[in-house]
Nucleic acid binder design. Structure first.
Lengths: 214, 214
DNA sequence: GACTCGGGTTACCGCTAGTAACATGTATTT
DNA sequence: AAATACATGTTACTAGCGGTAACCCGAGTC
């Protein structure tokens, strides 16, 4: 059996799969992440079992759907990361690329990051996710308050403090989540590394020989 | 209506509520966040409608459950944040407090942060942990690679780069998530604030008059 | 005794993910 | 031409979920 040559059947199946994914995309972006398999099937003009034949289960469909957007986002991030500019500019370009992406397509973002939310009712961007103040938000707000109270940050200090509060909490959370799963080092080392990051070691580090530096 | 009588009723209701919450806690920590209302009711020795009378819906029960743990964690974080030490030490103490908490009770952590995963099989609804985490993880790993490739970080550079990769991605994600919901400033301002944070402005900032500084 | 009332249960609804079994068109083989 | 093999599609179902309506009972009160 030749694995490189694709038969007509495989090609047709792939095309069908793409059509289904596009239908799923439309439904998910319209109805939110709570879109049911029935709704997706209806949008595609077919019925449920076909979806299951193609994607196994809902997780499979979700994964296929997420992979498309994820790959696209990662590609644009890589481009920003590779742009010819100094380190600070590249960092800002990367941040901006990510933020622009989530700003341009918040529905996609919410689907990828907060699939559990979305609500039964058609939420018109009102008051979504505000009712349940998750742990991260509360930590971010509290830290922001501490920063604003105790640090002299000059003009715009309140906004800066809030950005930092949520940013630092997110850093702590993501690093902790990764660390908890992989245990790549001791807790003390992790703490030290993160504090070093916050203490500007990223800006102070030298370029590696032969490279432009992040 | 008699006030003392109502107080008795209130007290008894509160006690019941606490008992139910403790039962829910046991089930959730045993069966994962997919624990059904039926299972929780059974653990508490009663039936579903009582749960609904006390907590409204599953979200209410979840919120009440999360609030307990969240409040406890926030208390210990506040303590670390208020410890008498210099800023760097306080930052490290706060990071360590958080990480120690998630290390000590990973089940609680997973419940609070990854409510969708955990259930062995038969997940209802899209699960966040299995697919959105991959996006964050992939971004973190890619950034780690870029950092390690391009920056001269001395000994332990690989581990440091990975911590930073995941940390920076988490910072970007959390700040972006908050920003997307509240839109407190322009994208450019957000980018600049985050880059400032990464560039060590936190360490460089002066204390506010009369306070010890974060 | 009748009467409210809080705590409790049974039995149900509508919805979901997922599946088994059946139908149908189409291309290849005999 | 007839029969077979197969992908494509459907209908009709299961099991379990969150959530609710309706009833039920015991304890205090007029």
């Amino acid at each position: 059996m030749d694995t490189t040559q694709r038969t007509d059947q495989q090609r047709s199946a792939d095309r069908r799969r793409r059509e289904l994914l596009e239908a799923a995309d439309r439904v998910v972006l319209r109805d939110g992440p709570q879109a049911s398999m029935n709704a997706i099937a209806a949008e595609a003009g077919i019925t449920k079992p076909i979806l299951y034949r193609h994607f196994g289960d809902k997780g499979g469909l979700y994964a296929a759907l997420a992979k498309r957007h994820t790959d696209a986002l990662l590609d644009s991030l890589r481009a920003a990361l590779d742009a010819p500019a100094d380190r600070r500019e590249r960092v800002e370009a990367t941040l901006d690329t990510y933020l622009a992406a989530i700003e341009a397509r918040p529905q996609v973002y919410r689907f990828l990051m907060h699939p559990a939310e979305g609500g039964q009712v058609a939420d018109q961007g009102f008051d979504v996710g505000k009712h349940s103040a998750p742990l991260l938000r509360r930590m971010g707000e509290e830290l922001a308050q501490v920063i604003e109270d105790r640090l002299d940050l000059g003009p715009g200090s309140q906004q800066l403090a809030r950005v930092w509060g949520h940013g630092i909490v997110g850093m702590m959370h993501a690093a902790g989540d990764w660390w908890l799963g992989e245990r790549p080092c001791s807790r003390a080392e992790l703490v030290r590394s993160l504090a070093d990051l916050l203490w500007g070691r990223l800006a102070a580090a030298g370029d590696k020989v032969g490279g432009p530096g992040f």
